[in-house]
Design a protein around this nucleic acid. Structure first.
Length: 875
RNA sequence: GGAUCCUUAGCUCAAUGGCUAGAGCACCUCGUUUACACCGAGGGGGUUAUAGGUUCGAGUCCUAUAGGGUCCACCA
């Protein structure tokens, strides 16, 4: 056996190991040697934006998903994990625009659409490779042969087809309504892309003209040029008499016709209790105008300036107009009050420009319309139904409520965006004709819609567009309503789990459910695992823009990917934010080194060292052997259960405790005395396999070191706990032994007794004398009496004499046992009562009865052993 | 206004209603025994935010209070 270095240096091996895995072909489930009926386990990677660099948020997602995939692959599932990237239309366009401005001082309008798009593609080809290469550094076992991009040919075809199919089914329509318009991005924003910023502003209270009967309050006087009504609360006694009346006059020189209407959304206590209705520039006013059939006068244009026909104000910016209107009102002494108030300003989430609500022609997904295709249910109904019927489960469960709340309040989804980069809308116009289809209509004069689709439209299709949905949809077009899936779609859809951050639950997850309900008539995934956000050690959100984060690539190069993965996976729980610090990563690097050194010792200490899959009972020789083997099989069963139930942190902690505290600190030391290489090989075999999903690199490196390429750990079988090897008594006995060893050690050090000296111990009997001596590093002479306490005499060449009762706190043990017995009796009484009650047996779910019976049995067994041990060893 | 999460050791976090509330880091003492100083042994440090309740048994479930975070709606 060649010399093995003292420490494991991840930098040296990680890339090579990743290359070995990739070369093996086993990332692709088609290459796994599996029985035909092997179950599928599929995950699709939430596609990172092409403009992203790997940050800890990605690392977290990759660590969790790779853990799931490796675990299931080893368990014999047809494990598929699909990589890909998102074109992130608006974000990418913004980045390229900024870049062009900075480097060449030009705008996209200077370049023109085609040249600009060429620039975007040139840019994204580079960044796309970067982010995907960085995912490799985390050890992600993604099937690269199925790599996808939301804007590649296959996905473009799928998106186009989806739009056409939805349009044909009546689920997409074109309509005018108030949208959130960003005058800088020149694009609409979805409701959840709008951010709110608190600001101080003035609330003006004034009348339109002198003899107008009601004064109104507003923070935006400039929009009042387009008012067509004043709304009051129907219950407001002050204004009741005016409801229904119409007034005409001039406001700042502009002729207005104002109708007094009532609406229960008006708050009688705000301002004057009367609201000037500007239909074209406020969502809520638009609705009132529809209800009351009012005229909708547009005041502000797409650049954020006042339109023509508004006299002196035309062409001026909205802000400037506000100043002008206010001073004009002051001149005419129409202003009654100016109050300082705080309100929320809507701003663009990309560029923080103030949002201008504007009416505009847009394409919408109708979420409320009953669709024939969905059995006369609406998309919204369907998306609610699948969650209510528990076809889709959220982890943690509480997000079910967030999802349902959001879905219940869902409005039609505006899917057109006024940007150049993205999926083109498959709609063509010729004068008043509109054509919707996958390819351009024949004939001259047709012009394609200049807008692009919302990026969530394409990522909403991600679970099936990545599995070849386009060709499937094409093939099944016109055929009956029954969907017969083929190929990858048949094998891998719906996926088993979607793993993503809770911050995009509504943005993305909900849309995937909508889209899959329509296209596939099935759920996109069975479970949604939502991880928390990764925060820095001050509890701030790490983000690419703030630059306050720990760079995972730096951490990987210093401490290794395994340490980074474990720091993310352990000590965190689903849906809760996790703070990562360098210290935490460092401590897991130490753990990785520990695993390495366990192997180093084993391989160096035994010439015949081998990894052993199974052992016989006759290989188990000592108490320590019984204990470690039993403990291993117990813990491996628990770890498996925890992983199956998405309790990664719990699984990892149990594993770490077993490896470090039990195996390395205790068993290995004893093994040096007992020399049982079989048990060592057996336990280490399991440790490597159980650790592999958490720390794939170091475990594989050890495996390769030993097998020299003859086997790959990544595709080894997951260990199944062997219940025959469980030995509960061994654990209790060994715990006792550990206590005694510890006490003797403490006494030895506190009396400064040199190692190798002898002490006498009074006891009826002491088992495992040799282990005791080895571990406590002192010679022990057993005095077979159980009389009085021994006397401790300290001095040179003098023996220390102890009674075993000095070594274990008998009173404490007794008290503990008594308390447990009391509780236990209560439990027995309760359970017996439950079983006597025939109603309970009938009504209670089977699991409850079984669980209670198991509990009862376990308690009985444990207490029996404890009582026995206390009798034998202590008294 | 609605929803939701959190409050546990000095710090960061765990703990399927069940055994002595656990880890890591930090701190103190001891230790270099051929796997490992990226180490080992031990120790100190907790009224689990507060007050009630349910239970044989509560950090965990219920009610209320206080403080902190997040999301949604509204913001004339």
């Amino acid at each position: 056996m060649p010399e093995i270095p003292k420490t494991y240096e991840p930098q040296k091996y990680e890339d090579k190991i990743y290359a070995l895995w990739e070369k093996s072909g086993f990332f692709n489930p088609d290459n796994l040697k599996l029985p035909k009926n092997a179950k599928a386990y599929s995950i699709v990677l939430p596609p990172p934006n092409i403009t992203d660099k790997l940050h800890l948020g990605h690392s977290s997602m990759l660590a969790i998903e790779d853990l799931l995939i490796r675990f299931h692959r080893m368990k014999g599932y047809r494990a598929l994990w699909i990589p890909g990237t998102d074109h992130a239309a608006i974000a990418t366009q913004n980045v390229v625009e900024k870049k062009l401005l900075k480097e060449k001082n030009i705008t996209r309008h200077d370049l023109g659409r085609d040249k600009f798009l060429k620039e975007v593609w040139k840019f994204l080809r580079v960044t796309q490779k970067t982010i995907l290469n960085q995912t490799r550094k985390m050890g992600a076992s993604l099937d690269w042969s199925r790599e996808a991009f939301t804007l590649d040919d296959e996905r473009q075809k799928a998106v186009t087809r989806m739009f056409v199919e939805m349009h044909e089914a009546g689920a997409i329509y074109r309509g005018e309504r108030i949208v959130n318009w960003c005058p800088r991005c020149k694009s609409t924003l979805a409701d959840d892309e709008v951010e709110y910023k608190e600001q101080k502003t003035k609330l003006y209270t004034f009348r339109y003209w002198k003899n107008f009967p009601i004064s109104i309050s507003t923070t935006r006087p400039e929009t009042k040029l387009g008012d067509t009504a004043v709304a009051v609360n129907p219950k407001d006694a002050r204004y009741k008499k005016y409801i229904g009346q119409e007034f005409e006059g001039f406001f700042c020189g502009i002729a207005l016709k104002i109708k007094i209407i009532s609406d229960r959304n008006v708050d009688a206590n705000f301002g004057t209790g009367a609201l000037g209705v500007t239909p074209a520039h406020s969502m809520i006013d638009w609705k009132m105008a529809e209800d009351n059939k009012l005229e909708k006068v547009k005041v502000i244009d797409e650049d954020g300036n006042i339109k023509k026909d508004f006299g002196e104000f035309s062409g001026k910016t909205a802000l400037r107009t506000r100043e002008l209107v206010v001073s004009r009102l002051k001149e005419d002494s129409l202003i009654e009050k100016e109050d300082d108030i705080e309100n929320n300003l809507s701003v663009c989430y990309r560029c923080a420009t103030t949002i201008e609500p504007l009416p505009s022609k847009q394409w919408f997904v109708n979420v409320n319309k009953p669709l024939k295709k969905l059995g006369n249910k609406s998309l919204k109904d369907k998306a609610i139904e699948v969650v209510k019927k528990k076809k889709i489960e959220f982890i943690p469960f509480r997000f079910t409520k967030s999802y349902l709340d959001w879905m219940n309040n869902l409005h039609d989804w505006c899917i057109s965006r006024q940007i150049w980069f993205g999926h083109k809308i498959p709609v063509w116009y010729k004068s008043k004709d509109i054509y919707v289809g996958e390819i351009a209509p024949k004939g001259k004069g047709w012009k394609q819609d200049p807008d692009s689709l919302d990026t969530w439209f394409s990522s909403g299709m991600w679970t099936f567009s990545t599995l070849g949905w386009h060709s499937f949809a094409k093939a099944s077009a016109g055929k009956s309503d029954r969907i017969i899936k083929t190929g990858d779609l048949a094998r891998f859809h719906p996926m088993q789990v979607l793993e993503t951050g809770y911050d995009i639950l509504t943005l993305w997850v909900s849309r995937m459910i909508l889209m899959s309900s329509f296209a596939m008539k099935e759920i996109p995934f069975e479970k949604v695992y939502l991880h928390g956000l990764v925060l820095d050690k001050f509890g701030k959100k790490m983000s690419k823009s703030k630059g306050n984060g720990i760079d995972p690539l730096d951490m990987i190069s210093i401490y290794g990917a395994d340490a980074v993965r474990m720091a993310i996976l352990l000590g965190s729980t689903p849906g809760n934010d996790v703070r990562i610090s360098e210290e935490k990563i460092e401590s897991f690097r130490n753990y990785v080194t520990k695993i390495w050194n366990i192997y180093r010792y084993s391989a160096m200490a035994y010439a015949d060292f081998n990894f052993i899959e199974k052992i016989n009972k006759k290989d188990i020789k000592s108490l320590a052997d019984r204990w470690i083997v039993s403990n291993l099989n117990n813990v491996s069963g628990e770890i498996t259960k925890d992983l199956e139930n998405y309790r990664f942190s719990m699984a990892g902690e149990k594993l770490q405790k077993f490896v470090w505290n039990d195996f390395a600190d205790w068993y290995l030391e004893i093994n040096k005395a007992e020399k049982n290489s079989k048990i060592l090989g057996y336990v280490l075999d399991k440790i490597l396999k159980l650790s592999h999903p958490f720390a794939p690199f170091v475990t594989e490196k050890i495996w390769q070191d030993f097998f020299q390429g003859r086997k790959i750990l990544m595709v080894e079988k997951w260990p199944v706990a062997d219940n025959d090897l469980l030995d509960k008594k061994a654990k209790l006995e060994f715990d006792n032994l550990k206590q005694v060893v510890t006490k003797i050690r403490n006494i030895r050090t506190s009396y400064h007794i040199d190692p190798g000296k002898t002490i006498q111990v009074f006891a009826k009997k002491i088992e495992n004398k040799e282990i005791l001596e080895k571990m406590a590093r002192i010679k022990i002479e057993i005095v077979l009496k159980s009389s009085a306490k021994g006397i401790a005499i300290v001095g040179k060449n003098i023996k220390l004499t102890l009674a075993i009762s000095d070594l274990i706190d008998v009173e404490k043990e007794k008290a503990r046992l008594e308390k447990e017995i009391t509780n236990f009796d209560g439990l027995i009484t309760k359970i017996e009562a439950l079983f006597k009650n025939s109603n309970f047996v009938k009504s209670a779910p089977k699991e409850v009865i079984v669980a209670n019976k198991v509990k009862l049995k376990e308690y009985q067994e444990k207490l029996k052993i404890q009582r026995e041990l206390l009798k034998n060893c202590i008294y």
